[in-house]
Amino acid sequence: MAELMVGATKRARPAGAGFDPVFRILCFAAATTLLTAIAGVLISLLIGGEPAFAKFGLRFFTSTVWNPVTDEYGGAGPIVGTLITAALALLLALPLAFGVAVFLTEFCPRPLRRPIGVAVELLAGVPSIVYGMWGLFVLAPLFAKYVEIPIMGLAPPGSIWETILSGVPNGSGLIAASIILAIMILPYIAATLRELFLTVPARVRESAYGVGCTSLEVVWSVTLPYVRKSAIGAVMLGLGRALGETMAVTFVIGNSHGFPTGIFDSGSTIASTIANEFAEATSDMHTSALLALGFVLFLITFAVLAMARALLGRKDPV
């Protein structure tokens, strides 16, 4: 039909010109649909969570009591658990991702470059439930046997260390969840960093080598400063993913509400709490508290991504 119309109009106009306004409107519709969807989710989370916010007020953010029997909900445990696991995961993943990216751009022999690059991207494609099962059945027992129990044994009886290192010695807990998260966000950060490093003009790096810099000096003083701000953006993207990860964390975090008291302690995150309880939340306040938690997670993730956006959008100084 479109072709017929174009054929009927003047020859001078380029083919397809008649469709252009339609194309523009379609693109605009696509963009606004997305925006409307995001706004819709945010607003419906806020409306759904409103009864919980109204009833508990600030206590929702400070209280660790999460009791479906008495309908008392405080989200401090899951909120803190979310922040701790995401931060720890980033701490673990960042040096590794940095190493992978530097190796791929600076040292990697050409024949190995593609296989390693593909392997990194493959890691990003593994479904999170698979990471969860692997974490529960493989990682947790190994972690308990070779890390947790030996370290717990080091604590002198009666000392403060006993409290810090306390927890259930079966490998599940905040640390195990952080390790799984680190493995999950590693490929994202590594792949983005590699792309960034490749944007450094060859002549800049080669001049540095030319004046006698070592590889370390080139990476540290030339490549990194060149991409610094974009690199922070890449890290934030990884953090955003760590904050919202659900299934893998639910499997290995130990799922106990309240503040963790030791590093091997069990905990919970916002996403794992929602995944665990939403299906069977029969009371209205329980559902509302979970939606309120969802709203908080949305805000945290949004803040992180907005920060990433701001940093990525800025032009790096040359």
Partner: peptide
Amino acid sequence: KVGASDSVAWPVGQGGK
């Protein structure tokens, strides 16, 4: 004091899914 429901505030322990 803990009560009965399909999820409760467990005084101790770890939760498996």
